[in-house]
Every structure is written in C-alpha cells, then in structure tokens.
Design a binder for these strands. Structure first.
Lengths: 233, 233
DNA sequence: ACGAGCTTGTGACTTGAATCACAAAGTCCG
DNA sequence: CGGACTTTGTGATTCAAGTCACAAGCTCGT
C-alpha cells in the first residue's frame, strides 16, 4: 500500500485530520486516538480514516490506535508543512485585507510574505504589518522572499493577468478567490475558491429538499383514508 | 436521462457554467454556444459539459449548440436562483465584514438580509448598510426576514453553537467558514470552506511536483553517457 | 432536395473513490 | 499463559464519476 500514489480524495482529507489531531495534541489528556474517534472529529467514517492513513504507512497499533504526536508529525511531513511556506496575496480589497490579517495561517504552516496591488492609493500602505507593493515588482520580490504560493484576491477581470505574472515569477501553486477561471501552464496548480459557487450549490440542495418535503406532504394528504381537500390543516 | 437525479459532481459544475454563460450573455455578440466553447471557458472538457447539461434536459440543437439565454435560464431555475435568496452572516470579524460588503452576491442570486455577532462593541453598528444584531435575536429575525441560508464566519470555537442556533431557527443550508467541523441534524446541509485546508492541499502537490522534478534531474544526470560525479554543472 | 459538415445526446467502457468485512496483531486481566 | 476484547490494515466489492466514440439530428450551400 505504502508506495502507491496517494489519491486526491485522501489528500483533501489529510488537512482535516491534521486539524483534529492538533486539537487533541493541545489538551494533553489523550496520547492515542482510534480511527473511530478521529472519524467523529473529522466528520467522516472510520473505515475511510483507516484507509486514508494506510496510504501514508502503518502508523497505528492494533488494539490501541494511533499515537497523536507521531501521526501529527507524519501528516505534517506528508503535506510538506514542516517549515512555514511563504505566500503572497495579490489584491487588497475587502477579501485581500481579511486574508492578510487572518491569524490562522501562521498556526497552520504558512506565512504571508508579501502583498501586492495596482491601486496607487493602496500601494505603499501598511496592511497587517506588511507594506503593499506594486504588482510590477512581483517577480523581484517573489524571488527575494522565496514566495512559493500565490493567492489571487482581485476582481474577476485582472485575475488572468495576475495568474500569468505569478507563473512568470516561477510560482507553481495558486489559490484563486476571484470568480473567474484562470488558465495557466501545465506545471502550475490552481485551486479555486468561489463563495458564490458554494452558495449556489447550497441553493440547489435547499430547493430540492424543499421539493421533496412538499411532495411528501402532498402524498401524505392524498394517502390519508379521509383525503378530501378540506383535510388541509 | 431527464428524470435521473443530478449527480453531485454535476451540481458542483453548474455554477461554473452559469458564470461562463453570464459573461457570454453580457456582450451580446454570441446568441449560441457549443459544448466545446463552454468547456474552454469553464476549464473542463466538452464531453463532460454535454453530459452535465443532458441531465437537465435536451436544451441544445445538434449542429448548432446551446442558446445562451435559454440555457442561462434553465440552469438558474435548476439551481433555484430565480429569485434572490436571503442569507445571514454570523460573525463580523475581518472575514465577516469582507463577505458583508461583497457586491458579487446580489448579481448571483443572493441577498444579505441580516448580520449577527455577540460582541457588544459590534452589535448595533452598521456594516454595508445593515445593522448588526445580537445572536440572541437570530431566530426572530430569521423568521421575520425569511432567511434561508446561514453563513458562519466566526472563530472555530463558537461555530458549533452558532450552527445549532441556525438549525433551531429553521435554517437548512449552512456555509461554514470557521476552521472547525460542525455537527447538525440530518435535514441540514453544511458546506465547509476552509482557507488553510486549501493552502495545505496546494502545499502537498507543490512538494510532490518538486520531488518529481528533483528526481528527474537526478536521473538525467545519472543517465548521461558521461555520468561521473564531477559532471555536475 | 440532397450531401457535406457540425454538434449534440447517450450507451458502453474505464477509472477512481467509498464501503464492507474480516484476518492479523496488539492489550488486558485473571 | 491463555482467552476475551480492541482496533488496525487491506483485499474484495459496490458505487459514482469521467471518458470514449458514434449514431442521430440539424444547417447550409448548391
């Protein structure tokens, strides 16, 4: 099992396990955790946890569970988070600012190393302790600071341009918050996070469940022995 | 095909097609669009587009493509976005504020109808034209305003409590930005968006690709006819 | 009105993920 | 030291998603 490539779906869950393990490690009461407990905390089922962890290696002990600290380290290592990765944020509107001042990154293996914008009224100002630089200086500063991750927090239109500049600066990993699909060279990975899309997906299920509830209600009425129209309560 | 339930994966892509269609509809040059074009814009392949759309019905014309306006309407309807859905944001830290003042929601079928917090220095203030109310008033205001979607933008600790309050207020759809897994009754749908998790997934692939590049580099050196150690350039 | 040329819609197939279920390997207690 | 009890690790199986490939259906030019 050990040498097989780790499935995408598993990679996407590792950070969730990591989060759960961090909270366990914090209150030092529990040295060890079972797949069942971990599954509860992560909101998945136990078999999935075991299979996922088995891709990393045999880090558990039968009859006991997994050593919290050890597993924590192994997942951290597998995700490449043993030292803080420097990231840059491009676009300092509301969202960019919120991201720049988000304290959670530091705890989770990242460091905001640079901020960029094109608006002259923003360039040169200080956001969360870092001076905003002009997008034109991207390549130099990225090289200088060793930035490896780019976070696009611009409006949709400039997103493509920014992605190209990032690729040109040698960045291989991009997180895109702009509501636009960006095209990049094949050696660059982009993940998209779109708030509206998430809401629209919710809307679909909302509507569907409502339709089901309505249908059930209707058939309940029709199904009752006394199913005359006036039965409506 | 028509009556089969729409696959989850397809539902998740419909909003992306919607986005593409909106931009086509804006510049009125193109009345019709082929699966190939749409695929390009959405960043997927054409066969997938056709299969996805076929779940909604036969809305295309062979030899021609899909009518932009008509398809736009059908997807909007399928997603339940024909009228604006009222949403509430709970937690007005940096992220909550950014969301509250995000203009994109209105264009995409949503309306921020209410804001909540527990901090007395925030309750009563005005954010993006809406007065922040205390979390304790949640149920009343949700009923009053007909809110159907809850957006959790609190720190991780209060997230579970907020989710329970939302469920108690009758909300069936929750978008959770807090870095915590929340448990809800089975009739409530939760989608989680976690910025750190997205970055951690990127980190994994970043590291893996780097490892591959390094390995290739090494084998290139070893593979050369003259593979003596000093060949290193 | 017919054939050349597109483009859709979909059955058949392939790939990948989730689930099941159980042997293997450990602990604990009398 | 042995047997009852846990819990892992993983083949085997089922289920969902993605891809292929082509007949069906439409347009347009002649």
């Amino acid at each position: 099992m050990r040498n097989r490539p780790i499935p995408e779906a598993t990679v996407a869950r590792l950070p969730v396990y990591l989060q759960a393990l961090l909270s366990l490690a914090e209150d030092r009461r529990q040295m060890t955790v079972s797949s069942e407990e971990l599954a509860q905390m992560a909101g998945v089922n136990a078999a999935k946890v075991r299979k996922d962890l088995s891709y990393l290696g045999s880090y558990g002990t039968r009859g006991v569970g997994y050593d919290v600290e050890y597993l924590l380290y192994q997942i951290t290592r597998e995700l490449g988070l043993t030292q803080d990765l420097p990231a840059a944020i491009i676009g300092l509107g509301n969202l960019g600012r919120a991201l720049a001042s988000f304290k959670g990154f530091a705890e989770r293996g990242f460091k905001i190393a640079a901020l960029f914008d094109v608006d002259d009224s923003v360039v040169g100002t200080d956001v969360g302790g870092i001076t905003v630089r002009h997008l034109d200086d991207l390549k130099d500063i990225v090289t200088e600071e060793g930035v490896v991750i780019g976070i696009i927090a611009t409006p949709p239109t400039p997103a493509q341009l920014v992605a190209e500049r990032l690729a040109d600066a040698g960045i291989k990993s991009i997180l895109n918050f702009a509501p636009a699909v960006v095209k990049v060279p094949p050696d660059v990975t982009v993940r998209k996070v779109d708030l509206s899309i998430e809401l629209q997906i919710l809307s679909f299920y909302q509507q569907r469940n409502q339709a089901i509830a309505t249908a059930r209600e209707a058939s309940r009425r029709l199904g009752t022995p006394d199913s005359s129209p006036q039965t409506r309560r």
